Simulated assay, not measured.
Amino acid sequence: MLTIGSASLRAALIYTRSRVIQISLSSRIAAMSTISDAITKDHRELEAYYKEVINSSDHDHQERYGNQFTWELARHSVGEELIVYPAFEKYMGGKGHAMAEKDRIEHHRVKEMLKEFQNMQPNDPNYVPKLKELWGNLEQHMNEEETDDLPALEQALQKAKGESESMAKTFGFTKMLVPSRSHPSAGEHPPFETVMGLLTAPIDHIADIFRKFPDKTISPNPSTK
């Protein structure tokens, strides 16, 4: 068991080292102006992918955009948990801690539903209903983030010049390294979640090669998102 675990960890570390090289090469690319911009951009993309699935009756189209939705939501969620929620706690004290814990609970519920959805096929009669159920929870969560959480964070970050922009850049880089499928058992708190991500991300990203995505692409490139 230890041997298997060690081998998996070595593979994860090799994978991470290769991604760090990609990060260095991508450092010339301008980051989002603020962390709120980065989060909101992801929200709009998720909404677009969701609509592509529910407004189509073509199973191939639904599968491609369902995979894209899963890919983006899984990475977005973990990125928030590793970068944004710790910032709530660091810069907003007790209020920030309460916000982060509330959001983590909401994330866990969404990740449980996403795990169910990601294992379904479009010909399953529950495919679209399950996605709509997930979206109902996710949309409410995103609206609360955009209306309440992110404005409060940006106000708190005004005292730390450049921190919001730095967080946006780190958020984008973090999404390159995290799993692209839902793993609720990893939890929502680092460092355990970080360790699980190192182990599961390479497996997820390899499996993505064999999944269908929009525009006939073979696995989206995390370094461009």
Score class of each variant (00 low, 15 high):
residue 207 A to F: 11
residue 213 F to W: 00
residue 105 I to S: 08
residue 26 S to C: 05
residue 72 E to M: 11
residue 57 S to M: 11
residue 220 P to S: 05
residue 91 Y to V: 15
residue 103 D to G: 11
residue 98 A to L: 10
residue 28 R to N: 13
residue 102 K to S: 08
residue 78 V to C: 02
residue 144 E to Q: 09
residue 136 G to R: 07
residue 219 S to A: 11
residue 55 N to F: 10
residue 9 L to K: 03
residue 221 N to M: 14
residue 37 D to P: 01
residue 143 N to W: 05
residue 79 G to A: 07
residue 35 I to P: 01
residue 118 Q to I: 14
residue 148 D to A: 03
residue 44 R to M: 10
residue 150 L to I: 02
residue 40 T to C: 03
residue 183 H to E: 02
residue 154 E to N: 07
residue 97 H to V: 06
residue 34 T to D: 08
residue 2 L to G: 12
residue 164 S to M: 13
residue 55 N to W: 04
residue 10 R to F: 13
residue 42 D to P: 01
residue 181 R to W: 04
residue 77 S to E: 10
residue 122 P to A: 05
residue 66 G to A: 00
residue 189 H to T: 07
residue 192 F to W: 12
residue 103 D to Q: 06
residue 174 T to F: 01
residue 4 I to S: 09
residue 46 L to R: 00
residue 163 E to H: 09
residue 56 S to H: 11
residue 181 R to S: 03
residue 86 P to L: 02
residue 179 P to F: 03
residue 201 A to T: 11
residue 178 V to T: 09
residue 50 Y to T: 01
residue 150 L to C: 11
residue 139 E to F: 14
residue 146 E to I: 13
residue 108 H to T: 06
residue 89 E to M: 04
residue 77 S to F: 04
residue 167 M to R: 01
residue 160 A to H: 07
residue 126 N to E: 10
residue 91 Y to D: 06
residue 27 S to K: 14
residue 70 T to G: 00
residue 149 D to L: 14
residue 61 H to E: 11
residue 182 S to L: 05
residue 174 T to S: 10
residue 102 K to L: 08
residue 11 A to P: 01
residue 57 S to Y: 09
residue 198 L to E: 02
residue 139 E to A: 10
residue 81 E to N: 08
residue 96 G to P: 04
residue 114 L to M: 03
residue 46 L to W: 04
residue 130 K to S: 03
residue 219 S to G: 06
residue 218 I to N: 08
residue 162 G to T: 06
residue 218 I to V: 13
residue 75 R to K: 10
residue 57 S to A: 11
residue 130 K to Q: 05
residue 153 L to V: 05
residue 123 N to T: 11
residue 129 P to I: 13
residue 223 S to A: 15
residue 15 Y to F: 12
residue 104 R to A: 07
residue 72 E to P: 00
residue 147 T to W: 02
residue 2 L to Y: 07
residue 38 A to K: 00
residue 212 K to R: 05
residue 208 D to W: 01
residue 147 T to Y: 00
residue 126 N to L: 14
residue 206 I to D: 03
residue 115 K to S: 13
residue 149 D to V: 12
